[in-house]
Each structure stands twice: as C-alpha cells, then as structure tokens.
Amino acid sequence: MTDFVRRHPIWAAVTAILAAILIWMIFALWPSWLVDLIGKKKVFLNALFNGITLGGLYFLVASGFTLIFGLMRNVNLAHGSLYLLGGYVGYEFAELTGYWLLAFPAAFIVVALFGILLQLGVFRRMEGQDLRQTLVTIGISIIMADLMLWGWGGDFYNISAPSWLSGPLETILVTSQKRSGDLVYLKYPLVRVVIFLAAVTIGVGMWLLLNRTKIGMLIRAGVDDRDMLSATGARIQLVFLGVFAFGAGLAGIAGVVGGTFQSVAPGEDIRFLLASLVVVIVGGMGSIPGAALGALLIGLAEQFGSVYMPTYAVVLTFLIMVGVLAFRPQGLMGRS
C-alpha cells in the first residue's frame, strides 16, 4: 500500500480524492443541484449496492474460472454451463426439500462431481494441449446447453429465498429528507446483503486457503511455475482434480445465487461465461484478488450503466475490458 503511494503519488492522490467523493455521496444528504444533475440519491445508492452485490455473484463464478485457468491453463468455456447446471440442480433441490439453504450444498456437490468427471474423463487426457482443451469445452457447452434445454425447457425458474430472508433491510443510510423534515432511510433486500456477505466470506476463505495452508502454497506454486509442479509427481493430479472440482462447485453455488437474485433460464450460461471472461481479463488471469476487483468493477459498471446510460450498459463493461487490454494486457492484478 505505502509502496504504491511512493511509486505512483499522482494515482494515489486521485484514488484518495475519488474515494472521499464516493464516501461523501454515500453518507451525505444530497444538495438539490446534485439531485438535479444525476437524479435521486436513492437511485444512485440502489445502483451502487446492486453493483456491489452483483459483483459478489460474478466473483463466485469467475473465481472458479480463474483458479482453474491459473493452475491448469484450461480455459473452461463450459464454465457458464456449470453455473446453469448449478441453478437447475439448486432449484430442483429447493423445490423437493423445501429448504433453500440445502440448494447450496446440493448444487456444489453435484456440479463438483460433474467437474471431477470432466477432469478425469476429458481434460486429463489432453494435458498441456490448451487449445484442444478449450475446443472440447466449447463442445461440452454446446451439448450441455441443449441437454438442459431438453430437460428443463425454455421456462424461467426462480429459486425463492425463505421468508426470513425475503424482507428488506432497513439501513442507516439517508436517501432524502421529507418536507416534514423526517429523514428517509434506504431499504435494501436482505437476501442480497446476506449473499454478498457469503461471497465475501468465501473469497476471504479462498485467500486464506491459498496463502496460509500447505495445499494453498502448492496450488500457488503451480500457478507460478507449472514445470516445478510436475516434478513433484503423482499428487499433483489430485490437486488438479481438487481445484477443478472446487471451481466447478463454486460455479454451481453461483447458479443458486443467480437463481435467487434473478432467474435460471437458457442463455444464462452464455451470459455468465461472458461475465467471467470479462472479469478475469480485467482482473488478471489466475489471480483471486484480481477476480474480486474485476467482479466489483464489472458489477458496478453494469448497474450504473443500466441506470445512467441504459442504451449502452453492456457496452460499458466491454469498454472497460478493451481499455484494460490496451493499457495493461495482463489485467489489473495480473503479472506480466
């Protein structure tokens, strides 16, 4: 941190000023000129929180993607299909048992098992041939999309959160002041907050796992230098398998989250695959903190875009990607 300030004093100052403005915009009561300029504070805050929570969802999908890529150099273009499968499995399980919470382990286990099957049956046979692996994942995604369409049809499924989570959360943030002088506080869906906190917990957990445990060291060493890993022998296959299963399982969990936030439907696989791609390109391939930063940026860009420039909301995210590619091709947190 201090290193960054010393090396890039101007950027550090700009960042600090922007952060200060943001904090002021979140906590202060907006003066009327600002409301005239960009609209109600409530809209702004909602976009901000929706962006952050959407970022949490993107992080869940993209972190598995980036981990698998970093360790195995496997660009898993079927990752969106794993997400969608998780959504359907979670939906079925929640319907069957009536417990929303059970949908998460169910989706994790089923999709992780499916991931193990893919790793053992397909990717292990073509290790080191990254293009061929990528082509295979395209084939798998085409087949899975059609099989899921066959099984679940073209309908939208919504995984409903339990009643104890469905209400709004009264926050301490003021959105406006009534004529009477009463302050109006922002209400925000509790379920989104809870899920975001869960995503943060998972992220921190992954970071701790990677940085504080022996197995994490092994994985990070593998990301840095794959040749070194192959020297350690047969156990690396287990690590590969574990990482692939975990990454796939995370995508499955994300499917349940997505089904709760929005819905499970054909086409969502492509959407979340693209989101993962952009997040990982922006954040830096193979980096978990990069995935977190990228997910946050893309989530915010999408939400603010859809509020303040609705016609080009999606384009905005791609513009960010193009900008990063042009000036920092290895991604914001990636190493060159």
Binding site: D130, L131, T134, T311, A313, V314, F318, M321, L325
Partner: peptide, 22 residues
C-alpha cells in the same frame, strides 16, 4: 496463446450487444 480465444469471444459479444442496443 490461449487468451486470444477469450478476448475475441468477448469482442464478439460486445459487438452483438452493441448492435442490438444501438
């Protein structure tokens, strides 16, 4: 190498969405 496939896929998606929204 393999990043190419990801970047071009993202560019293809960007063009699709842009054309649809413009």
């Amino acid at each position: 190498g393999i990043y190419t496939i990801m970047i071009t896929l993202a560019i293809a998606a960007a063009f699709f969405y842009f054309a649809r929204q413009n």
